[in-house]
Computed example of a mutant assay.
Amino acid sequence: MPVNVGLVRRLTKDTVLGGYLIPRGWEVVAPTMLMNHEESIFPRANEFLPGRFLRGSLYSPRHTFAFLPFSYGPRMCIGRRIAYQEIFCLVVRVLSEFNVEYHGSEEVELINRLSYGPSRPLTLTFTDRKR
């Protein structure tokens, strides 16, 4: 099973990172999952705070490039804008028509398959808002 360790890039020139010289041709890994749980980068990293990604939030990442779900630069996902628009439309539609509640009592962990996902099925209840 493939393991998603983060962003992997092969260096095209000698590069100094953190005071260390890394030769051209070596692969550099940015361990995104580890960074997402690092308190110095994401304040209150282990809490579910969806507002952290709003501009000006007290809990937003401390570095602009700390969260890159679609990568960055010439190798960035070409479908990024479409994906963001689709996600936004879906969330607005669901939340405008339903109240969503989580009814699980067990702790849910993230597990790594091809990408990250919940360790067990989530128990969600969707209640029609029109009632």
Score class of each variant (00 low, 15 high):
86 E>Q: 15
46 N>H: 06
21 L>Y: 07
104 G>Y: 09
40 S>L: 08
120 R>A: 12
87 I>A: 11
44 R>C: 10
35 M>G: 05
6 G>H: 03
44 R>P: 05
130 K>D: 07
63 H>A: 09
54 L>C: 04
78 I>W: 04
90 L>Y: 00
59 Y>E: 02
114 L>K: 01
52 R>D: 01
104 G>T: 04
93 R>F: 09
91 V>I: 14
14 D>A: 11
83 A>D: 08
81 R>W: 06
73 G>L: 11
92 V>T: 14
93 R>M: 08
57 S>W: 05
8 V>S: 08
34 L>N: 05
30 A>I: 15
11 L>K: 04
104 G>Q: 11
94 V>T: 09
9 R>I: 13
31 P>C: 08
118 P>G: 12
97 E>G: 06
77 C>T: 08
124 L>W: 13
105 S>F: 15
23 P>R: 15
34 L>V: 04
130 K>Q: 12
86 E>V: 14
109 E>Q: 14
110 L>V: 02
80 R>I: 00
32 T>G: 12
16 V>R: 11
108 V>M: 13
65 F>Q: 03
43 P>S: 15
88 F>L: 04
116 Y>C: 01
27 E>G: 06
53 F>K: 03
103 H>G: 15
73 G>S: 06
87 I>H: 01
96 S>T: 09
117 G>D: 01
11 L>Y: 01
86 E>W: 08
6 G>S: 05
74 P>Y: 10
30 A>G: 03
22 I>N: 11
57 S>K: 13
89 C>S: 15
114 L>V: 11
76 M>I: 04
71 S>D: 05
71 S>N: 13
111 I>K: 15
37 H>F: 14
22 I>R: 04
84 Y>D: 04
2 P>K: 12
52 R>H: 06
21 L>K: 13
22 I>G: 12
22 I>E: 12
46 N>K: 02
10 R>H: 04
66 A>W: 06
59 Y>I: 05
31 P>E: 01
115 S>G: 02
121 P>Y: 11
63 H>C: 04
15 T>S: 10
124 L>T: 02
119 S>W: 05
34 L>Q: 07
35 M>E: 00
66 A>I: 04
59 Y>L: 06
130 K>M: 10
64 T>P: 10
40 S>W: 09
70 F>H: 06
19 G>I: 11
9 R>Y: 10
22 I>K: 03
61 P>Q: 01
10 R>Y: 06
74 P>E: 01
11 L>A: 07
79 G>Q: 07
85 Q>R: 10
110 L>E: 03
31 P>Q: 05
15 T>D: 05
113 R>G: 13
48 F>M: 12
21 L>G: 13
47 E>Q: 11
5 V>H: 07
34 L>M: 06
49 L>E: 01
2 P>Y: 12
98 F>V: 00
119 S>Y: 05
126 F>A: 15
53 F>D: 02
45 A>D: 02
80 R>W: 00
87 I>R: 01
122 L>C: 15
1 M>R: 04
8 V>Y: 07
17 L>W: 10
54 L>R: 13
42 F>V: 03
27 E>K: 12
95 L>P: 08
115 S>H: 08
5 V>C: 09
78 I>C: 03
41 I>C: 14
28 V>W: 02
63 H>V: 08
68 L>V: 13
11 L>Q: 02
74 P>R: 13
24 R>Y: 03
80 R>M: 08
22 I>T: 12
66 A>Y: 10
8 V>M: 11
